[in-house]
């Protein structure tokens, strides 16, 4: 449904998105996860054919992103909720949706049906004649979701739909997204919230200008979840650290008398590590094997410098 191949966007000197290659299947929730400034918004804007790409290629629902004629078709097939919802505050909820339905040339009967259906699903039907200026943040976010659905789009692009929402409103929005997936829609979700991505996405791409990892939440957990052995010593000395570095098993970090060695397989490698410490004259107080959380792994991935 969405395919990109080396998709790139440069703003002058600055590369916002670097050679992004992803593939999103029909009916899938794909999460693009990354910190602020990672290029998530830029990616979605390119895919919605709002801004041009500067390199690579992309297709949405079979249409060519960047092709003048196709961009109208793409915008007709997709629903988009930008990071700033951008509702007309001086109009009622109903009029906001009706306006967008008209812009999409949705037939009147279908428009009315969809407005009622989505406002009811989101618990906003009673408020349909209220000005949007009276709405809470959560209500506005929900209304923006309804607006993006008014023309029965096949693909939905959601740019951080739960950012700035209180936990309860965020949960309603997430549940609604899952409900939409149940209707067979393809959903492309930008988020900086790892927990959210893990909970609702079928697959996640971790982005920080370039793609750092890609897979199902389980796959990511398996590949990126690092483990480490933590050794409490009576004293950390230079020879010990030299010996540990000499092993080249993984990253070594020191915190007072505690040495942490990242290991791929601690159970197998601990013996070698202990050996090295004893030979360097170290006296061990305790040894622990810890697993880093997915969060730590994610942060590490995101911070890693571009590898050539």
């Amino acid at each position: 449904m969405i395919d990109t191949e080396g998709l790139t966007k440069k703003f002058g000197e600055l590369t916002a998105v670097d050679r992004l290659t992803i593939h999103v299947d029909e009916g899938e929730i794909f999460g693009l996860l990354g910190p602020n400034g990672a290029g998530k918004t830029t990616t979605v804007r390119m895919l919605c054919s709002l801004i041009s790409k500067t390199g690579g290629s992309a297709r949405v629902a079979g249409y060519d992103v960047g092709n003048q004629a196709d961009s109208l078709k793409i915008r007709g097939l997709i629903g988009f909720v930008p990071d700033n919802v951008g509702l007309y505050e001086a109009l009622t909820a109903y009029d906001n949706l009706d306006f967008y339905g008209k812009l999409h040339s949705t037939p009147e009967a279908r428009r009315k049906e969809n407005i009622e259906r989505f406002l009811k699903m989101l618990g906003l039907w009673e408020k349909k004649d209220d000005d949007v200026s009276t709405f809470s943040k959560g209500m506005k976010q929900k209304l923006a979701l309804a607006r993006a659905l008014i023309h029965d789009p096949k693909v939905l692009f959601l740019d951080e739909p739960t950012a700035n929402l209180d936990p309860e409103a965020a949960k309603t929005v997430r549940d609604f997204i899952l409900e939409l997936k149940g209707e067979g829609r393809t959903i492309f979700l930008n988020t900086h919230n790892l927990d959210e991505a893990q909970r609702i996405c079928d697959r996640i791409g971790i982005l920080n200008t370039s793609l750092r990892a890609l897979g199902t939440p389980e796959e990511l957990e398996r590949t990126v979840k690092g483990r480490a052995t933590v050794v409490q010593l009576e004293q950390v000395t230079e020879p010990i650290l030299d010996a540990l570095h000499g092993l080249s098993l993984g990253e070594v970090s020191v915190e007072r008398n505690k040495v942490t060695i990242s290991l791929a397989d601690p159970e197998k490698q601990n013996a070698t590590v202990m050996d090295a410490i004893f030979r360097a004259g170290g006296r061990v107080r305790s040894v622990n094997v810890v697993g880093s959380t997915l969060e730590e792994a994610y942060l590490k991935l995101v911070r890693e410098k571009e590898e050539k």
């Binding site: 915008r75 007709g76 909720v81 930008p82 700033n84 919802v85 607006r147």
Partner: peptide, 14 residues
């Protein structure tokens, strides 16, 4: 200013 242009521009309008 009200940031309403972005969703408007994302519709199939020229």
């Amino acid at each position: 200013v009200e940031r309403t242009l972005e969703p408007l521009l994302a519709t199939p309008t020229t």
